[in-house]
């Protein structure tokens, strides 16, 4: 983690702010409020789908690339998704070289755990010829600036990028024993992915006796333990992970899960709304990317 050293006094200030329940947090948010979020899809034209998410200072770019490959023998009739996270040195000099790898693998394991079930993404539809050919979705997350709450931001970015993903249609021609795959040339002859049940991660940070969502970098420095939850729009939980060097009381875990579920459902629906809104504006929309 991109650690910044904060003084004890500053940490106490944040802690007291949350404890007093008065407008509560250092930036005036309530305990269950997210910071301002901006999302844009289709920013990298070399990909099958991409999204850029900016959550306050956290900046994440996700690119999805669909490539043809062989399905794994354990799942011969479905495609694969592979997560790769790269912490760019742009975010902080500590990530230079291999410095960001630890954080990167942490994020990618949580993401792949969230998607590691049959309900979240229909991998069966990615299969072309069982045991022989399938689509492999490489989901590459590029972390460009970290301002806290990276896991939530990464998962939202991934979901948006998957929404934006378009996979070319293929037709299988059988000639004698040879299977031949024909890729459609038409850029509009594509398949979309159904992401209605894909999860978003909600991280709840325990600070003092209370828990907050969307912790900023400062708050993360004060946090002893946090609970990450993959929540789907239905309110089911696709992954759960406690993190940090503190421990948690069972009661507070149930409290946190309750909050997480509630927030996660709202997050999922509002994300989908935003994405659909963006889609409606269609081709007229000009991609701004990083130019704004």
């Amino acid at each position: 983690m991109a650690d910044v050293n904060y003084s004890e006094a500053e940490k106490t200030f944040i802690l007291h702010g949350i404890q007093d329940k008065f407008p509560c947090r250092e930036d005036g948010r309530g305990c269950e409020d997210y910071r301002h979020m901006e999302i844009e899809t289709g920013v990298v034209s070399n990909t099958s789908g991409s999204a850029r998410l900016r959550l306050a200072n956290t900046d994440i770019l996700v690119g999805v690339k669909a490539e043809l490959g062989v399905p794994s023998p354990e799942k011969p009739d479905s495609g694969c998704i592979e997560f790769f996270v790269d912490c760019s040195a742009n975010a902080t000099p500590e990530f230079e070289g291999r410095g960001g790898e630890e954080l990167a693998t942490e994020i990618s394991t949580v993401l792949s755990r969230c998607y590691d079930n049959s309900g979240c993404l229909d991998l069966k539809s990615l299969c072309i010829i069982p045991k022989q050919q399938c689509w492999i979705l490489y989901i590459d997350v590029l972390l460009l600036e970290c301002g806290g709450n990276l896991f939530d931001a990464a998962s939202i970015g991934v979901k948006a990028a998957l929404y934006n993903t378009r996979i070319p249609n293929v037709t299988v021609n059988q000639e004698d024993d040879e299977m031949e795959i024909e890729l459609s040339d038409d850029p509009y002859d594509v398949n979309r992915l159904d992401i209605s049940s894909s999860p978003c991660i909600v991280t709840l940070s325990k600070i003092g006796h209370y828990h907050v969502v969307d912790a900023s970098q400062k708050e993360e420095a004060c946090c002893l333990a946090r609970l990450m939850m993959g929540v789907t729009a239905k309110g089911t939980i696709s992954a759960l992970k406690k993190e940090g060097w503190g421990s948690l009381n069972p009661e507070s875990i149930f409290d946190m899960m309750e909050t997480g579920k509630k927030i996660g459902q709202v997050l999922n629906t509002s994300l989908l709304n935003v994405l659909e809104e963006e889609e409606k504006s269609g081709n007229k929309r000009k991609t701004v990317g990083f130019l704004k």
Partner: peptide, 9 residues
């Protein structure tokens, strides 16, 4: 605390 798989609350 870790979990795997899609589970009801």
């Amino acid at each position: 605390l870790t979990s795997k798989g899609e589970i009801d609350f």
